[in-house]
Write a protein that binds this DNA or RNA. Structure first.
Lengths: 148, 148
DNA sequence: TATTGTTATACTCTATAACTATA
DNA sequence: TATAGTTATAGAGTATAACAATA
C-alpha cells in the first residue's frame, strides 16, 4: 500500500473531535451546537438558512438543533419584518455569557491540540494544508466556520 | 474567534472522503470495504477481530461488512484449526484481482488529492502532522491502516 | 412560481448488550 | 470463566420529499 490519506484524516479528525466533544460536555453542549452559537455570535441577525449554509448543515436538520438552543434560552428566533417567512437569529443575554464560557473550553481544547501538533507553527501549517483541501470542490471563496 | 481546527478538519475530511467514495463507486465498493480488503491483502490469515481492531471497527459492525464481502466472493472466512472459535480471513483469487483494480482507483484519487495539496511534499507534510495528531490518545505504537 | 421554515422519514455509521460455541 | 463471532437494537449525523406561510 502507501499512504491512505483518507483513513488518517478520518482517524485524526475523530480524535480531535472527541477531545472537543469531551470538553464541551461540561456545558452539555455538542460541537454542532457550539458552531451554531459561534456563528450567531459572529453574524447576529442572520436568518436560519444563511447560518445553516455557512455551517454546511441542511436547513431541515438545523430546525431541531435550533429548537434545543432556543429551549435553553441561549438564542432566539425573531420574525423578520421585511420578509415574514424568515427567522433572524440572535443570542440572548444569557447566550452571550454562555458563549464566553464555551469559547474558554474551546481554547483549552485548541491548546491541547496545538501541543500535540508540536507548536503553533505546525497548527498554522496544518490549517494551510486543510485550506488547500477545502478548495477542492468549491473554487468559490465562500467557506467560513473559521474567523479572523 | 480563531482557527476552529475541528471544523476545518471535519470538512476537509468530508471532501476527501467523498472523492474517495465517488471513485470506489465504480466498483460498487465503499471506503470501509476498501479498507477491509486492503487489510486482508496485507495480513492474510488474520482473524476477524484483529483486522477489525486495526481498522478501528467494532467487531459487531465488522460482521455484516464481512458478510457482504464474502457474498461477493472477494474473501472468505476459514475456521481456524487451532482455535475453532476464530475465523481466519483470506482473499479469494477473484479478490486478488479485485484488489488490484480497487488500488488503481485509489491511486487516481490519491493523485487528485496530492495535486490539490500542491505536490507530494505537501502530502508528506500533511501525513506527518496527522501522525502527530494520531499520537494523541494512544501513545503506544499500535496504529496501522497505512503501510510502507 | 419560488423560498423559508417545518415535519416526517430514511439511510449510514457507530455503539452496546446479550447470545452461542468454543476455549 | 473468558473470548470470537454473531444478532439485535439504539443513537448520532446526514439526506430527501412534501407541506404551510409568505414572497
Amino acid at each position: 500500500m502507501t499512504s491512505l490519506l483518507d483513513f488518517k484524516l478520518r482517524r485524526a479528525q475523530l480524535l480531535v473531535h472527541q477531545d472537543f466533544a469531551g470538553a464541551l460536555a461540561k456545558l452539555k453542549l455538542r460541537p454542532a451546537e457550539f458552531s451554531v452559537l459561534a456563528m450567531i455570535a459572529k453574524y447576529p441577525g442572520q436568518k436560519q438558512t444563511t447560518i445553516a449554509d455557512k455551517l454546511g448543515i441542511k436547513r431541515a436538520n438545523f430546525v431541531f438543533l435550533m429548537d434545543g438552543i432556543e429551549a435553553r434560552g441561549l438564542a432566539v428566533r425573531h420574525k423578520d419584518k421585511s420578509d415574514r417567512r424568515s427567522h433572524s437569529l440572535y443570542l440572548t443575554e444569557e447566550g452571550v455569557n454562555f458563549v464566553e464560557r464555551m469559547v474558554a473550553l474551546w481554547q483549552d481544547h485548541e491548546n491541547r491540540i496545538v501541543a500535540t501538533l508540536g507548536g503553533p507553527e505546525n497548527r498554522d501549517q496544518l490549517l494551510h494544508l486543510l485550506d488547500r483541501l477545502l478548495s477542492f470542490g468549491n473554487e468559490e471563496g465562500e467557506s467560513d466556520a473559521a474567523g479572523s
